[in-house]
Design a protein around this nucleic acid. Structure first.
Lengths: 344, 344
DNA sequence: TCCTCCTACGTCAACGTTGACGTAACCGGC
DNA sequence: GCCGGTTACGTCAACGTTGACGTAGGAGGA
């Protein structure tokens, strides 16, 4: 079997020579443009097949007037988070339908890395960028946006103007979750959140506060634990909460890894049937556990589709004012959020 | 905020004009090549910054002799499967370290789609392709390979020659799982597998047969259910198995979605503490269930790293004979696979 | 002093493709 | 037969970049 390197890729010139026409005619045939007779078309097609010719999209987009690379960039934080992978999938799905491929890059919540990735994408002249991991520092994003690259932020709004974004009902759904717990009689509802710098964390915390207020409950500050980035920190925080003199009877975990961490601790202490738990963000098998985990489920495919729709509209020249699309989330009741406070 | 389209991207020519040098000198500075004085370097850098110049990699790779696009393609089947997303992540990780980006495409186990994606990747002149979803029909892959594109298959070996692949110990680990069940006293061990056309399914089935034989058990054909693509089919099959006059006391589920399907049925029937279950492929939260699910865990990051290592070696011109790398899997005992047969 | 070598640039063409434009042949109408 | 229009091609240059090669000027050696 032949190794790469030895053979040169056939070009339009080679096809043209074999079909005894000009390269321009080959171009016309390959692109299905009029101005070529049936006989010539057949000859060119045959020659292309014989040589195994494949058009070079990079050369084409260099010369073309529209300059499209038929490629978009998608930046995410961590593919091992099902939220990210489901979102990537939804965007890729939509892109593929338009013959567009996706350049995927994980920025790992690293500001410098995100900047480098944006430069890499820019160097490849992507038609647009979907950012699923806009951290606190959006300067690189802003810079790229100001260069004219169409951009859509997902999950977090831009800190700069003129850019579309798609988020979910972070605040309203959090409030709804807290109200449900309060309605069951819980008065000591803890909040466990991810980094406070994240917009989503802030929104969900605000929703928590609104829920408490609306239920007529007073905030106990020691029941609020934030900056829990990852399941391990969540475990520590949950342990600390349960060790309080007056521990919470219900937990609202505002991110899926936090939910998992809290779950582990409840389970380890045998409290998973006694302490109520509602998590933000669904995760696989949440329904298989005992009890099933009640969650606020984001419509991830819906968010992905919306993001794709927006980016492609911008790429196609839509210059209407920037949009902040909000895709509703839903409370999915599976048991853990329906546990009433146990009498001490 | 300015919309795309109006402004032209600055080019080397623009930078050259502003810095009052030739484009060639700009090229030298941008690429860090020698042959430019310090003063000129500074002037060019300043001009580039002023204009917001970004090198055009597509034009560059068109002209360059090595023709590298610094981009590889990764084809997968379904990103919502954690196996695929973890693998993509591992490959992307390694690629990024070399300044290489990943063009991601999901082929959804659709032969025509896979062919189209390969053409799309080829049109963008990717330096290599990692295929995590080589279905039964590999003609498109073979064709691409014969054009000289470096290629690595993951999870399944090629049906054609001259191509590297990375798989796990499908057969040995399956045998080990069955032997463990047999050692606990199980004599009626069912096999539930994905599509028979898949190489992995065949290997795992062979391992099952070897395990039975080695344990001195006879095969009961009605305990073998294959072609279970997706959790729904697995549920139906599991139900049918449990309804047999002499139902299995242990299940070996040879794919993670099948495991989930079987689990659901066992759980629905309240048999999850009585029927043993070992699944091939780990999945998130398998340890949180009751009982924890015993699985054969593939070393997914290891497989991804190996695949990336191979593809980059080939891209760098390694012409040594093709490799079939085997990354060992391990049996992770969590409870469900340690249930002894219950007396009827 | 002259020749050689090196450094620091510049000039030119080419990568594979397509937009703009040219032109030869043919067709229909008068 | 001539004119205007259409069809089916071809020619040329350019997209942004870099390899090959040229050259001016200075340093260094005999």
């Amino acid at each position: 079997m032949d190794q790469a390197g030895a053979r040169r890729e056939p070009t339009m010139r080679d096809v043209a020579a074999l079909a005894k026409v000009s390269t321009k005619t080959v171009s016309r045939v390959i692109n299905g443009l009029p101005g070529a007779g049936q006989e010539v078309v057949d000859r060119v097609r045959a020659a292309a097949r014989t040589l195994g010719y494949r058009p070079n999209l990079t050369a084409s987009s260099l010369r073309r007037s529209d300059r499209r690379s038929a490629t978009i960039g998608v930046l995410f934080e961590d593919l091992s988070n099902p939220f990210d992978s489901a979102l990537l999938r939804a965007v890729e799905d939509r892109a593929r339908q338009g013959g567009v491929l996706v350049l995927a890059g994980s920025s790992e919540d690293d500001r410098a890395l995100q900047g480098e990735l944006l430069i890499s994408l820019s160097a490849r002249r992507v038609d647009g960028v979907v950012v699923m991991a806009a951290g606190g520092h959006q300067d690189a994003l802003q810079q790229e946006r100001e260069r004219g690259t169409p951009m859509v932020l997902v999950d977090r709004p831009p800190t700069f103007g003129g850019t579309d974004c798609v988020t979910t009902t972070n605040r309203d759904s959090s409030r709804e979750a807290v109200l449900q717990l309060a309605a069951l009689g819980h008065r000591d509802i803890a909040f466990l959140g991810d980094r406070r710098t994240l917009w989503t964390s802030q929104e969900r915390y605000t929703g928590y506060l609104e829920g408490l207020a609306q239920a007529g409950l007073t905030l106990r500050e020691e029941l609020v634990r934030t900056d829990l980035h990852g399941a391990d920190l969540a475990e520590t925080a949950t342990t600390a909460l349960l060790d309080l003199d007056r521990p919470p009877t219900a937990l609202f975990t505002a991110q899926n890894l936090v939910t998992v961490g809290s779950m582990r601790v409840l389970r380890a202490r045998g409290l998973h049937h006694r302490v109520a738990l509602i998590g933000f963000d669904d995760f696989p098998l949440a329904d298989m556990l005992e009890p099933g985990i009640t969650v606020v489920r984001q419509d991830v495919p819906g968010i992905g589709r919306k993001a794709a729709e927006l980016i492609f509209a911008r790429i196609d020249g839509d210059t209407s004012p920037p949009v902040h699309a909000v895709v509703p989330a839903a409370l999915v009741r599976r048991g853990s959020g329906e546990i009433a406070p146990s009498a001490h």
